[in-house]
Amino acid sequence: MTSCHIAEEHIQKVAIFGGTHGNELTGVFLVKHWLENGAEIQRTGLEVKPFITNPRAVKKCTRYIDCDLNRIFDLENLGKKMSEDLPYEVRRAQEINHLFGPKDSEDSYDIIFDLHNTTSNMGCTLILEDSRNNFLIQMFHYIKTSLAPLPCYVYLIEHPSLKYATTRSIAKYPVGIEVGPQPQGVLRADILDQMRKMIKHALDFIHHFNEGKEFPPCAIEVYKIIEKVDYPRDENGEIAAIIHPNLQDQDWKPLHPGDPMFLTLDGKTIPLGGDCTVYPVFVNEAAYYEKKEAFAKTTKLTLNAKSIRCCLH
Rank of each mutant, 00 (worst) to 15 (best):
T2H: 12
C4M: 13
C4K: 14
I6N: 14
I6Y: 13
A7F: 15
E9Y: 07
H10W: 07
Q12F: 00
K13F: 00
V14L: 00
V14Y: 05
F17C: 10
H21T: 04
G22F: 07
G22K: 08
N23K: 05
N23C: 09
E24N: 07
L25F: 08
T26R: 05
V28Y: 15
L30D: 03
L30C: 03
V31C: 15
K32D: 09
K32N: 15
K32W: 00
W34I: 03
L35Q: 14
L35D: 08
E36S: 10
G38N: 14
G38K: 11
A39V: 10
E40C: 02
E40L: 04
I41R: 02
I41T: 01
E47Q: 13
E47S: 11
E47G: 07
V48G: 03
F51M: 10
I52R: 00
I52H: 00
N54H: 08
R56A: 14
V58Y: 08
K59Q: 13
K60Y: 11
C61P: 04
T62S: 13
Y64K: 09
Y64M: 13
Y64A: 09
D66V: 01
C67E: 12
N70D: 15
R71P: 09
R71F: 10
I72P: 10
D74H: 11
D74R: 10
L75G: 13
L75Y: 13
K80A: 14
M82G: 14
S83A: 13
S83P: 12
E84Y: 12
L86M: 14
L86F: 12
E89S: 04
V90R: 08
Q94L: 13
Q94R: 12
E95Y: 10
I96D: 07
H98K: 14
H98A: 13
F100W: 07
F100H: 05
F100N: 03
G101Q: 06
D104N: 15
D107Y: 12
D107E: 14
S108H: 12
S108R: 15
I111F: 00
I112Y: 04
I112C: 13
F113C: 02
F113L: 08
F113R: 02
H116V: 06
N117Q: 03
T119C: 09
T119A: 08
S120T: 07
S120N: 05
N121Q: 02
N121P: 02
M122T: 15
M122E: 00
G123T: 01
C124H: 04
C124Q: 02
L126K: 04
I127Y: 12
L128W: 03
E129L: 01
D130C: 01
S131E: 11
N134R: 03
I137K: 06
I137D: 03
I137C: 00
Q138W: 06
Q138T: 05
I143K: 03
I143P: 03
K144S: 09
T145I: 10
T145M: 13
L147K: 06
P149N: 01
P151F: 01
C152E: 00
Y155E: 05
L156P: 05
L156F: 08
E158D: 12
S161C: 11
K163Y: 08
K163W: 08
Y164R: 15
Y164T: 15
Y164N: 15
Y164K: 15
Y164Q: 15
T167Y: 09
A171V: 07
K172N: 06
K172I: 02
V175H: 05
G176D: 01
G176Q: 13
I177H: 05
I177F: 11
E178L: 15
E178S: 15
V179I: 10
V179F: 04
Q182L: 08
Q182V: 13
Q182F: 03
P183W: 04
G185M: 05
V186C: 13
L187R: 04
D190N: 09
L192I: 14
L192D: 02
D193W: 13
Q194R: 14
Q194L: 12
Q194M: 13
K197G: 10
M198L: 10
M198Y: 02
M198A: 14
M198N: 03
K200R: 11
A202F: 03
A202T: 00
A202H: 03
D204P: 05
D204S: 04
F209M: 00
F209S: 04
E211I: 09
G212A: 03
K213P: 01
P216D: 08
P217K: 06
C218Y: 06
C218A: 07
I220E: 02
E221P: 03
K224N: 07
K224P: 00
K224R: 10
I226D: 08
E227W: 05
V229I: 08
D230F: 10
D234V: 00
E235L: 08
E235C: 10
N236D: 10
N236P: 04
G237V: 03
E238A: 11
E238D: 13
I239S: 00
A240V: 09
A241L: 00
A241S: 06
H244Y: 04
P245Q: 00
P245C: 01
P245F: 03
N246P: 02
L247D: 05
Q248G: 02
D251N: 12
D251F: 04
W252A: 00
W252F: 15
P254W: 03
L255P: 06
H256N: 14
H256Q: 11
P257G: 02
G258K: 08
D259F: 00
F262V: 03
F262E: 02
L263W: 07
T264A: 08
T264H: 06
L265W: 10
L265D: 02
L265Q: 08
G267F: 01
T269P: 08
L272A: 10
G274E: 06
D275R: 08
V278F: 07
F282G: 15
N284H: 05
N284R: 05
E285Q: 08
A286R: 10
A286L: 05
Y288C: 15
Y288P: 09
E290L: 08
K291Y: 07
K292N: 11
E293Q: 15
A294K: 04
A294E: 05
F295L: 06
F295E: 05
F295K: 05
F295I: 04
A296H: 15
K300W: 00
K300L: 09
K300T: 06
L301C: 11
L301V: 14
L301H: 10
T302M: 12
A305Q: 04
A305W: 06
A305E: 06
S307Y: 06
S307I: 00
R309D: 00
C311S: 15
C311P: 14
H313N: 15
H313A: 15
H313W: 15
